[in-house]
């Protein structure tokens, strides 16, 4: 189930003195089972891009296809889009509104023709994924939880519909290191289970570790697009444009400058350890 953006442009407030073109003729295909990281500086159009992909904005020009169908066609079934594409916004905890955790998590299932048991099972599974004990939290008010817990509750609400495609905007911003680790591991698990993941992040370390492909935007245009190892190997080029390639890549570079022959594409912590360990006699 690929999502394809074909020559998509987007302009905010068109026809006014405040008009601003956020995206300029972007073409991008995200294939089934990919884990794509999106990077770029503030205002480069990342958020606009994912909102177009999720059908929350309508492009000023160009088309967005889901499974080969134009999602902005009049006849396109929007419900299918909502079920297939889950979106976790920045600070998703603000989207909680129901009186109980169970009802809130089940909100996205409202218009699906699933049986009651199937819905409850989906809610239970989503909450357990996010580390909650379903029986203990189901009847509590979502507003009585701590900030980090609320965020996990909100993400459970997105995961409950079992989207094939998961879009995330800076999901780890403001999480403590342990929660961040746990969340990224969950993403990896979901990805291995067949979910396609598209994640905006400034966290180059996380993307280097988890994403297979990196897309970098600059001033509304594609700046880089390729396998993570390839994109991050050009550390200098990224740095000139204000983008970090991650700590591991930084270390690799320093070691290389000292004459170590480590490939530029060493971007993961595990890889680097292997490289270093391989150089020492047992």
């Amino acid at each position: 189930m690929p999502i394809e953006l074909r020559e998509v442009s987007y302009t905010y407030a068109p026809g006014t003195p405040y008009a601003a073109q956020a995206l300029k003729k972007i073409s991008l295909i995200v294939r089934d089972g990919e884990f794509v990281g999106i990077m770029g500086r503030t205002g480069c159009g990342k958020s606009t891009l994912i909102q177009l992909a999720a059908g929350l904005l309508t492009p000023s020009a160009g088309q967005v296809f889901l499974d080969g169908e134009d999602i902005n066609e009049r006849h396109f079934d929007r419900n299918r889009l909502r079920q297939k594409v889950g979106v976790v916004f920045q600070f998703p905890e603000i989207q909680l509104f129901e009186t109980t955790v169970e009802k809130d998590t089940a909100f996205g299932l409202k218009y699906l023709d699933w049986s009651g048991e199937k819905k409850q099972a989906a809610v239970r599974r989503a909450l357990e994924w996010m580390g909650f004990d379903f029986e203990a939290v189901r009847n509590r008010s979502p507003f009585g939880f701590s900030g980090g817990e609320k965020r996990r509750l909100a993400i459970a609400g997105v995961l409950a519909v079992m989207p094939k495609f998961l879009i995330l905007d800076e999901p780890t911003a403001g999480l403590d290191p342990l929660s961040r680790e746990a969340f990224l591991e969950l993403l990896r698990k979901l990805h291995q289970g067949g979910m396609t993941v598209l994640m905006i992040s400034h966290d180059a370390d996380a993307l280097a570790e988890y994403a297979g492909r990196i897309v970098i935007l600059k001033e509304g245009m594609l700046f880089r697009d390729g396998p993570a190892a390839e994109v991050f190997s050009d550390q200098e080029g990224l740095k000139e444009n204000g983008i970090s390639a991650g700590q591991v890549r930084e270390m690799t570079e320093r070691l290389r400058r000292r004459g170590w022959e480590i490939p530029c594409g060493t971007i993961r912590y595990g890889q680097l350890l292997e490289e270093i360990a391989g150089r020492w006699p047992r």
Partner: peptide
């Protein structure tokens, strides 16, 4: 801005 974000987040969850 906040209201717009909330509207989009709930739309993505299937709100009508």
């Amino acid at each position: 801005e906040e209201t717009d974000n909330i509207r989009k987040a709930q739309t993505a969850r299937g709100a009508r």
